[in-house]
Design a protein around this nucleic acid. Sequence first.
RNA 1: GGUCCCAUCGUCUAAUGGUUAGGACAUCAGGUUUUCAUCCUGGCAAUAGGAGUUCGAUUCUCCUUGGGAUCACCA
Length: 471
Amino acid sequence: MTKDTRTRFAPSPTGFLHVGGVRTALFAWLVARQNNGKFILRLEDTDQAREVEGSAEHVLKSLKALGLNYNEGPDIGGEFAPYKQSERLDVYKQWAQKLIDSGRAYADPYSREELQQFREQAQAEKKPFLYRNHRPENPPAWDGSQPLRFKSDPKPYQWHDEVMGDLSTGSEVIDDFILIKSDGFPTYNFAHIVDDAEMHISHVIRGQEFISSQPNYLNLYEALEIEPPVLATMPHIMAATGGKKLSKRDGAKDILDYTKSGYLSEALVSFIATLGWNDGTEQEVFTTDELIAKFSLDRVHKSGAQFDDKRLEWVNGQFIRKLDIGKLYELSTDFWPNVGSDADTEYKQKVLALAQDRMKTLNDLRQFGYFFVDPPVNMELIDSNKQVSKLSPERRAELIQQAHDALQNSEFTPEAIQETLNQLLETTGEKPGILFSLIRIYTTWAAFSPQLNDTLALLGKETVLRRLQQV
RNA sequence: GGUCCCAUCGUCUAAUGGUUAGGACAUCAGGUUUUCAUCCUGGCAAUAGGAGUUCGAUUCUCCUUGGGAUCACCA
């Protein structure tokens, strides 16, 4: 009988959720989903000093924004509640007692200063520092005021990691480590092992910062007589791009910043999943359902990847283009320019239909104020336009007047407008690059806009004629 | 420094002994008879270096170099 798949994401509330954290969470989520398993969220808040106010809520919000819903968690409870380590202190005490009883844990009698001296001494002798070389012969009884330390059993280890493959280390990396701190809280090293066992976690998927501690965890699993879960270690995502240092540490950026700037959650998910993973085909973009069907840990790269904003932008555009207008409208609620926020749904959907093919992020909607109110005249646009700037002011006025008169008699469907504009080319003898640019600028006062005839049709005859007489 | 891991175009990657080393992003050029964008066509661009195994190495082994992780009463 195979165990039920139960994966977990176990962040500590010490800041926002960045891209690397999201990827770890995403892969754990995918493994759970594809095996009809459960995805558990656990808060590892055992370091009171580092805890950042509000960051737990921030993490929950980030996961929800990305659609990485969990089956059990601190805010929704579950069979093994509580899911917050600070509320499970008695659980760790019980497991610690087992270790004390079996002689595998002891009270650490040394002060931090004494420990520091041991380290410096080892360094001076150019020997690696091992706490177990300083194990007290007759440790005091543990009364909770000293740290409780694990008594390790040094030996070589070899184990399998779903991503990294077969790994091995010698016994020299095995050492005694602290289980319970003198403030009564467990260390990560102890708490996560206890909780993963208590919560029946089948796969531990985490970042590479833990890989060098793995043999010590294996040692602890043995002492606790716990069967280790399936292990998978994710390589880090590089913070900087290329050789040049970026001021924005893009890989370390808050994931919510991306959703706030108009990136779709499914685009983010697809992009992050393919940072270090692909299915072996030439497919570049994946829906979340495809990811659930195709993802596998053994195809995750062992090497770290760099975050490329341009590629994310492209992926996002791909997803925006696939959306139907109703869905796009729903997602775009917060991204309209202020002047358009009260406009009616039907009109906004028409704007979206025009804009959809040119959008990279939902934020691009902000530039479409001219669809809602008359934009301010900006002669700079005339001067900076290579072709239009060559026209004399008189000729410009003349052309605009002709355009006005011609459009006045147009039926104002996109087709009729195109027809009118084409005729205008003939009667004025101007090139499209000049005439159309001129009309486009006078009606939108924007550096660019969607296709001219469609834009004019949506704006409506009255508005277009008014704007043509504005200057 | 010790230990562990990694190394294909600028970036994300495909190819696990036999390919002109493929795709995508970015970039450049052209097209879609207005701009920006979309879309289409084409160009540029990589196996870090050195030994070895082999008829044949991106692929297997070793060394070098480079990068990452870790060595806390942090996670």
